[in-house]
């Protein structure tokens, strides 16, 4: 029988360190991918994800089983991402490009357009203020509900809604300004 998250947490609290590996296996993909979209590159995403799991283990006694384990795990992870981003200096940080594996259904042209779109959106969300990027990723990439985002961020429903509103506005403005830049440098008659 598959152990529930809380059963595993209790086993860890009773001293079975290795039981924690089951929770890592269960949630590593969600944690690592959230960190990746927040940080923009694999190296920092791995550092933050590892640290997040270590912190979760060390504070398991504080885990409140009223919330899903993944909600708590994402809370620890996004807090660490925001801390790391605050400490990050103005130096250029690489943004890793990640594209879907070709499934053979798209024509080369469709594939090219999709990759360009993914690059454009990934670059644009990295330009947003961290606190806005966080909300966009949780809602639109991780597909979480308002309630889950409230639980993760500790913010009220009004703030969650307002921040999502502002985040989308900023994303739109960033994309429009890129489009204008592109048009400015486009060769006339070669649209």
């Amino acid at each position: 029988m598959i152990a529930s998250d809380i059963e595993i947490v209790n086993r860890c609290l009773a001293g079975d360190v290795n039981a924690f590996e089951v929770l890592i296996e269960r949630y590593k993909k969600a944690i690592y991918n959230t960190a990746f979209r927040m940080m923009g590159n694999r190296e920092e995403a791995e550092d933050v994800s590892q640290e997040a799991f270590i912190r979760m283990y060390n504070s398991l006694s504080k885990y409140n089983p009223e919330y899903k384990f993944i909600t708590w795990a994402l809370k620890v992870t996004t807090n660490l991402c925001l801390d790391s981003l605050r400490k990050r200096k103005a130096e250029t940080v690489p943004i890793d490009e990640v594209f879907e594996i070709k499934d053979g259904k798209d024509t080369p042209e469709e594939e090219y357009i999709r990759k360009e779109n993914q690059k454009l959106v990934q670059d644009a969300i990295m330009k947003l203020l961290d606190k806005y990027r966080e909300f966009l990723i949780l809602f639109h990439h991780r597909n979480l509900s308002y309630q889950e985002i409230m639980d993760i961020t500790g913010e009220s429903l009004t703030i969650v809604k307002n921040r999502l509103y502002r985040a989308r506005q900023m994303l739109k403005e960033e994309l429009i300004s890129r489009e204008k830049e592109r048009e400015k440098y486009a060769v006339p008659g070669n649209k």
């Binding site: 890592i24 990746f36 694999r42 640290e51 993914q118």
Partner: peptide, 24 residues
Amino acid sequence: AIDTLEELPEIEVPAGFESRVMEG
């Protein structure tokens, strides 16, 4: 942009991730 964001691909977690966390 939102459609693209919703469909951004999930990436694979690096090999040996669990072991490194457990070592930590």
